[in-house]
Design a protein around this nucleic acid. Structure first.
Lengths: 250, 250
DNA sequence: TGCTTATGAATGATTATGATTGATTTTGGA
DNA sequence: TCCAAAATCAATCATAATCATTCATAAGCA
């Protein structure tokens, strides 16, 4: 079976069933597990599906599925630590941009009583911010079902009405050469614009993102201060030259 | 069963029943209690549900639909009737503006499979629209905490990027002399703008709004078609001269 | 032939799961 | 009200499934 044939077959099965298991595909195609796995990685890179543990699912089709849930509780604790540390850089009365994302979401409890104005492109963040009594603007635009993030030209245009003192971005990878990256180019564009409207930009990531490269580049490392929970000496040596790295105290 | 499948399953069951018990989920999914428990923790972290002793319940259902708890079931039934009737005016492929509000919210289930593009200024509507698989744009802007409606200059500006085939507005009063009114001037301005960008405007109200006058004027009666559940002969005689009135069939 | 690409197998690491335990909460009767 | 039984919970552990990575082989092509 040709590679493209198999890709087509996988996508057809996916359209039918919404989700497929790797074992199903191994049996129905006769290819090895490794091959199927490579196929799924390719198709994911092409944005045609999303890999999940044990198989794959159609992008955007799992409307109710929170993108957050696939992360472990372990990582959640680290996210909270990072979020708390990040929030400590916010000054009384600041105008703040909070990127849509799970780590930035965790910052919200630490932001109240600071008399802020917050702008975000994250649907889930709006409710939480309001619950804390924080004045909140949502960018609006086209909503991405999976993540609840607003993207697109309307979002970018809406952003340009604001100026920020401080800006927090979630990222999926950072690398000395390739800079900050994230899977979705649309989201990357929004992050880019938000940062360019801010006096100061912080990029939030846990240690699993070190030297990872995701699909869409946001910007070079030196354009933001990286906040990370821990970092190896080797990685730090390289990164220190490029950017200011803040590491969460243990 | 894939993890995400199970998450989806749980959320769907929850949407149906409002609450689920863990034991129910164990039996219906075949997964162990531990696994279900972990799923619920994940989904709670994602803000999709709220865990309660013995199971889980939908988050912010009260925020999502305040009128359900406040107003009588009687009025809700009427809202649904009005909403269903209103939705019947939507054509295949239309671009639709849905005002933030409880009655317009009830239209959503009747809008799927119509291949629409919907724009709304209602936070609560976005999620529901997405759950129906409808392409949705949110205007953005400043959020009003109590109602979840976006208002203000950003909202108005965002609206001007669109043109609508059809537009549905919730109103708090209609009166031959004072026209359509609503309590909040900011919301009135948004409704006004949305209507002016639409080929056709419908105003939705139940019979309790007849001859009521609220604080802020939206527009004169003749600018929109009124959809109402029932209407007295006296009132109708006056209104008929001013506007087109559609009454829900009993 | 020499080079690239696709494939399959093997590996150690990571993740999801189910069972168990003791703690916590609810329930129902005195 | 209080107390005890039952139900539910959080935390932990062991296991099985799945994953990313590497290496070697086979297939295609100039």
């Amino acid at each position: 079976m040709l590679t493209n044939e198999r890709h087509l077959f996988i996508m057809q099965l996916l359209e039918e069933k919404q989700t497929v298991k790797i074992q199903e595909l191994v049996e129905s195609t006769g290819a090895s597990e490794s091959t199927i796995r490579r196929d799924l990685v390719d198709l994911e890179h092409a944005g045609k599906l999303e890999r999940v543990f044990g198989g794959a699912t159609l992008t955007g089709k799992n409307l109710l599925e929170p993108s957050i849930s696939d992360k472990s509780t372990q990582l959640l604790d680290e996210k909270i630590k990072i979020a708390k540390f990040a929030a400590s850089f916010v000054q009384q009365g600041d105008s703040v941009y909070l990127d849509a994302g799970t780590t930035t979401f965790q910052m919200i409890p630490f932001l109240k009583d600071k008399d802020l104005v917050v702008v975000t492109n994250g649907l889930t963040l709006v409710e939480a911010l309001n619950n804390q009594g924080i004045t909140t603007y949502l960018t609006g635009g086209l909503m991405k079902p999976r993540t609840g993030a607003f993207v697109g030209s309307q979002t970018i245009q809406a952003l340009q009405n604001y100026r920020f003192d401080i800006c927090f971005l979630g990222i999926n990878g950072f690398h000395p050469e390739y800079g900050y990256t994230t899977p979705d180019p649309e989201e990357a564009a929004v992050k880019q614009m938000a940062s360019s409207l801010s006096r100061k930009t912080y990029a939030l990531a846990d240690h699993s993102k070190i030297n990872k490269i995701s699909f869409a580049k946001i910007m070079d490392l030196e354009r933001a201060t990286l906040i990370v929970d821990e970092i190896s000496k080797d990685a730090n040596a390289v990164l220190e030259k490029k950017t200011i790295v803040k590491v969460v105290k243990p």
